[in-house]
């Protein structure tokens, strides 16, 4: 079965992104396909590579990156939501004249159309949020 995952909250404040991660991981492990994980609202903050959690805590963005690498899953940050919140890849940073970028490996920036497209392609779309 093909799943699409929508993550509406950032890491650490709400459990939503942990729940989304565990669900996505379990779905992939069971042999299901995940068309795309789409990050919206504060969910785009899952995609920063500058987060430095304490050593005894989970590293949420690294965990997503590892999942993307292992299963070749698309992790997409909504461009408008990401720009608002200061999540930039190299191209976006250059275009906006900013002095740095902070996108974690495996994440990409794209438009909201990718969310609708995921809903069209997938057999099931599940939303995690507050």
């Amino acid at each position: 079965m093909k799943f699409a995952i929508l993550v509406n909250e950032g890491p650490y404040t709400h459990q939503a992104s942990d729940s989304a991660y565990h669900f996505t991981e379990a779905a992939l492990r069971a042999g299901h396909a995940v068309v795309r994980v789409f990050f919206y609202h504060d969910g785009v903050n899952n995609g920063t590579r500058l987060s430095v959690p304490p050593q005894d805590d989970r590293n949420i963005s690294e965990r997503w990156s590892a999942l993307a690498e292992q299963y070749d899953v698309e992790l997409i940050l909504c461009v408008a939501a990401a720009q608002r919140r200061g999540l930039l890849d190299e191209d976006e940073a250059k275009r906006a004249g900013k002095d740095g970028n902070n996108m974690a490996p495996g994440f990409q920036i794209s438009g909201l159309g990718q969310l609708i497209d995921a809903g069209i392609q997938a057999d099931r779309l599940i939303v995690f949020g507050d």
Binding site: Y40, A80, L112, L115, I116, D117
Partner: peptide, 10 residues
């Protein structure tokens, strides 16, 4: 609302 407006094009 931004999603709805983008989604309408599909």
């Amino acid at each position: 609302l931004e999603v709805v407006l983008i989604g309408a094009a599909f």
